[in-house]
Structures are given as C-alpha cells and as structure tokens.
C-alpha cells in the first residue's frame, strides 16, 4: 500500500513539475493571436462608420455608414446602411458569417435603384470595400488557424508595449504573403499591422490611432490604412457606438434592408 502511495505521490509531483515548466514557457505567436481573436466582444453593437478615402493629391471622398452587428457565437450578422454620398444613399449590405470552419459567408445587397435585394457571392474577400484601402477580408475576423504565427519580437509603439507577430497564410493563394501585427500586451488589440503583397513587397500599413473602452469592451475607433504602393489612404472613424442593447434578430432581414433607416 505504501508502495502505491509513493508511486502516486511521485506521479503527482512529476505532473506539477511539468505543469510549472509549461506555465513558464514563453507565450507564442498563436496564443497571442488567439487572445486577440477571443477577446471579449459585445453580443451586439451599433455605430456610425465614416470612411475618408484620400488620394495621392490629398483629395478626400467621404462615405458614411450606419452598421448593426449581432454575434451569437455561431453566426455573426452585420447589416450596413449607406448614408452618404447621395448616389448610394439607402443602399444596404448584409453579411452572415459563420463560426463553422469552411462555411462561406452569406451576403446580400439592396440597391434602391433596382428596389430589390440581391444575393452576392462572398468569395471576393480580396475586393476592396467601397473603393477604400480595406479589403472585405481586412474588415472581417480572420480565424487564427488560417495562418502560421510567429512571435518575432517585443517592442513599444508610442509607449504601448507590444508583441510583434508575423503571420503567414497556410493558403498559398491568399492575397497577402504575410502580415506583421503589433499587439497591445494589455488590451489584446492590434495597434499596427503591415501587409505584404504576393511578391513579398510591403503593400499597406494599418495604424490604429484610437481605441476606447465601450462598456466592458476595448474597441478600435480611429484607424488609417495607408497603401504605400499607390500612395493613397483610408481613414476609418467609428462613432456613436452602443453595445449590448439587445438588437432583435429581425434587424438582420430583407425587410430592414429594404426599409432602410
């Protein structure tokens, strides 16, 4: 009996030692990206998104969108109503994104000129959203498993201590050959991201200029995407944000797309 107790004590001690060793192991790239991906998010949110498209001559075009988002962990629904410019006013766009691996998003657009809702393909992730420097993929939540992540260093940006993670896509056909992200160690949000094109050249840099705590959640409110190869930029400003207001499922429907705001 004493022999059995001794063996069990030895095994338990060994397990504790292994656990301690694991706990002390430095954090890796995948864990960092998963922490960002799994950061607490509101069940629903709404706000007004202003996109300023600035060309190489510093001429500016402004698009304003009111968006509603609801996430029940299995499906994330987003509906956007275009407020300006005048020629796209009352256009709406809806996206249903699924947590299930491999399942494509469902997307619809309502064009007031056609007065009907059209289903569109969600395959065009590399298309630029409304002529901005953000692709549809840039605006979505890319799953950590889609890339290989490597922690390359730790450094501070504007006094913010960051992890710097290089992410290389598993899919060779992906539009970027790699991205490098600076992640705030405290808030688990990205503060800067560099995008490299298929030839490995630096294409774009995303800089987060402001993030705010709305309710219990850290959210990016000001950001700018700079396309270095074409010398144009897109500033994105999110305002009038409310979270966890209990937005009804019926908000994400053909009825609302057609009715508008």
């Amino acid at each position: 009996m004493k022999r059995i107790q001794k063996i069990m004590t030895t095994v338990a001690t060994a397990c504790l030692m292994v656990g301690n060793v694991l706990a002390q192991e430095p954090i890796n790239g995948l864990t960092i990206i998963e922490n960002v991906y799994n950061r607490a998010q509101p069940q629903d949110q709404q706000g007004v998104l202003t996109m300023s498209l600035i060309n190489s001559r510093n001429e500016e075009r402004v698009r304003e969108i009111r968006q509603f988002i609801k996430d029940d962990q299995t499906v994330k629904k987003k509906i956007m109503f275009f407020l300006s410019p005048a020629d796209v006013r009352n256009t709406s766009f809806m996206n249903w994104s699924y947590s299930e691996d491999g399942r494509e998003d469902d997307q619809w657009i309502y064009l007031p000129a056609l007065k009907r809702t059209k289903r569109i393909s969600s395959e065009g992730k590399s298309d630029y959203f409304m002529g901005s420097d953000f692709t549809y993929d840039d605006l979505g939540d890319r799953r950590p498993a889609e890339d290989v992540h490597k922690l390359v260093r730790e450094e501070s940006i504007n006094g913010i201590a960051c992890y710097v993670v290089e992410s290389t896509p598993r899919d060779d056909e992906y539009m970027y050959s790699k991205t490098i992200t600076w992640i705030d160690k405290e808030k688990w949000i990205g503060v800067k991201k560099e995008f490299y094109d298929e030839d490995g050249h630096h294409l774009k840099t995303l800089t987060v200029t402001e993030s705010k705590k709305i309710g219990n959640y850290w959210m990016i409110t000001h950001s700018e995407m700079h396309n270095l190869q074409k010398s144009h930029r897109t500033r994105m400003l999110l305002k009038d944000i409310t979270v966890d207001q209990g937005i009804s499922d019926s908000q994400f429907s053909e009825r609302m797309m057609m009715r508008g705001l």
Binding site: E104, D106, K118, R119, I120, S121, S122, E123
Partner: peptide, 11 residues
C-alpha cells in the same frame, strides 16, 4: 430562386 456555390451565384 438564387443561391451560391463555390463563388458562383446561381439563379
């Protein structure tokens, strides 16, 4: 009807 299949929109 309309539906999507591997990047195609069929209607």
């Amino acid at each position: 009807f309309s539906t999507t299949l591997k990047g195609l929109v069929l209607k």
